[in-house]
Design a protein around this nucleic acid. Structure first.
Length: 477
RNA sequence: GUCCCCAUCGUCUAGUGGUUAGGACACCGGCCUUUCACGCCGGCAACAGGGGUUCGAAUCCCCUUGGGGACGCCA
């Protein structure tokens, strides 16, 4: 069985997260079976299909690494072929001209609704033999077959049956000669050699119509798989207005592309108890057996966890690249601080996203730090003045500014003062970072750099002196 | 309104007639620890409801309820 899948989005400007998952499943399935993954841009709605939208879409897919195996096909370039097929259907008797005006159709539906019926084209031009009305440009409609039912064979849903009588004669070619979605979709899938159609659940009801068309054309239908929807965390439909709907939002927010893909893959698919997958593992594990049929909600907590798992194992240069962007985003200069790879290593297990890393590493890149008042009051007390001054002097005289040397220096100072390492660690941390949380203290000082460290220790000593002075004057007064 | 799809812990899910209903996220304890994380150990927590079928149903069938989708000269 040959495998050729496709992702066929209409270019609306953003890559919808649900669409990304659909693309991912198509891509994975093709990769898994050594087939091809194709991209077709359904840009026949010319108003919405701006060139920049198309470019954005292709780029977004690229950023997640979902590259198609052939040049993307623009559906708009195929209208001649679509017309050809429509006329072929006309000649074979599977289609006919319909001279209804849009107003007439609207009125017809209105009446049907009023009578409590399903709005449906009544086939009034189906068997017309008389002369066509003057001045009306006709559309070409498909002649729905008379057979009893159509059966959609779906990977997830099994055989889904539709009574033909519930379907009506759909428009193939508009009055202006442009093809409609069903025709274009069916013809393009056939010509592209698509064998597996993996798409959203919202297309399930379109499939019987497309199947009828395929049958009328004598073609072999592809396999179908209709994926359940992706819902917002509250269980509602993902709103296009919500930024969480935009796949690129997650990249901007400091998530790793592979982590997003991993998360998305596990939403509606599973492989035993495994939660964390590399792309390679996904390719070798992905299969339709693991697919689920029910809609699933987005869970930001789980995404964060998955992302952290990926941060822990990601190549350091991948981390650095993203980190650089995140630092710039919050107004810091990535070049004015410790080497990015050291920063990445220090925080890859301590933050959930690269944005989190940048935020936590702020003190290593900025010149001004803010002392957290609570932490300072608690830790920078008069009793630590002497030890802090001693370690400050020792650090100033250090030959090499490495984490190992810094560690040894602090340990020696602590020992000579007869206090524990921990007694020195926290005051140093608060002095250098402004707060009580950071990587191990030797790493922290290394990352701050000697200049910043000594400078800030000086400030901290001043802070303590001020406290001592205040206490003294309070005692006197 | 008609048709179609879906239904296991709060969330993602495993399960395919016989399990103490498993795992993961989140949450709550504890351990580790120079802070925070990571890691490890433990806890809380589910088969929507009602009928069948069967010696036996989360698993099969029907109904109800709930959620979602489709009914265009949009895609």
């Amino acid at each position: 069985m040959s495998v050729r899948t496709r992702f066929a989005p209409s270019p609306t400007g953003v890559l919808h997260l649900g669409s990304l998952r659909t693309a991912l499943y198509n891509w994975l399935y093709a990769r898994r079976h050594g087939g091809e993954f194709l991209l077709r841009i359904e840009d026949t709605d010319r108003q919405r299909s701006l060139p920049e939208h198309i470019r954005a879409l292709v780029e977004a897919l690229q950023r997640f690494g979902l590259d198609p195996d052939e040049e993307p096909l623009l559906q708009s370039s195929r209208v001649e072929r679509h017309r050809e097929v429509a006329h072929q259907l006309l000649e074979s008797g599977s289609a006919y001209h319909c001279y209804c005006t849009p107003d007439e159709l609207a009125a017809m539906r209105e009446e049907q609704r009023a009578r409590g019926e399903v709005p449906r084209y009544d086939g009034r031009w189906r068997d017309n033999t008389g002369p066509p009305p003057a001045g009306v440009k006709p559309v070409i409609r498909f002649r729905r077959p008379d057979s009893e039912e159509v059966v959609v064979k779906d990977w997830l849903h099994g055989d889904v049956r539709y009574l033909n009588s519930q379907l009506d004669d759909l428009v193939l070619l508009r009055a202006d000669g442009s093809p409609t979605y069903h025709l274009s979709c069916v013809v393009d899938d056939e010509d592209m050699g698509v064998r597996q159609v993996i798409r959203g659940d919202d297309h399930l009801n379109n499939t019987p119509r497309q199947l009828q068309l395929i049958q009328a054309l004598g073609w072999t239908p592809p396999e179908y798989c209709h994926l359940p929807l992706l819902l917002a965390p509250d269980g509602k439909k993902l709103s296009k207005r919500d930024e969480a709907t935009d796949a690129l939002h997650y990249l901007r927010a400091g998530y790793l592309p592979d982590a997003v893909l991993n998360y998305l893959a596990r939403l509606g698919w599973s492989h035993g108890d495994q939660e964390v997958f590399t792309i390679k593992e996904l390719i070798s594990c992905f299969g339709r057996e693991g697919l689920g049929a029910s809609a699933s909600r987005l869970d930001p907590d789980k995404l964060n966890w998955i992302n952290q798992q990926h941060m822990k194992t990601a190549p350091v240069d991948v981390l650095c690249e993203g980190l650089e962007a995140q630092l710039e985003k919050i107004g810091l200069n990535p070049a004015d601080g410790p080497p990015l790879e050291k920063v990445a290593e220090a925080w890859r297990e301590r933050a959930e996203t690269l944005a989190g890393v940048a935020e936590a590493a702020r003190w290593a890149f900025s010149h001004e730090i803010e002392l957290d008042e609570k932490a300072a009051r608690k830790v920078l007390r008069p009793v630590v003045r002497e030890p802090l001054a001693a370690v400050c002097a020792a650090l100033a005289g250090l030959a090499e500014w490495t984490a190992a040397d810094i560690h040894a220096c602090i340990a020696e100072t602590a020992e000579s003062l007869g206090i524990g390492f921990g007694k020195l660690g926290q005051p140093l941390r608060v002095a250098v970072t402004g707060g009580g949380v950071s990587p191990p203290i030797d790493t922290t000082l290394y990352l701050a750099g000697r200049a910043r460290t000594l400078e800030r220790l000086d400030v901290a000593l001043g802070y303590i002196d001020a406290r001592i002075a205040a206490a003294g004057s309070a005692a006197q007064g």
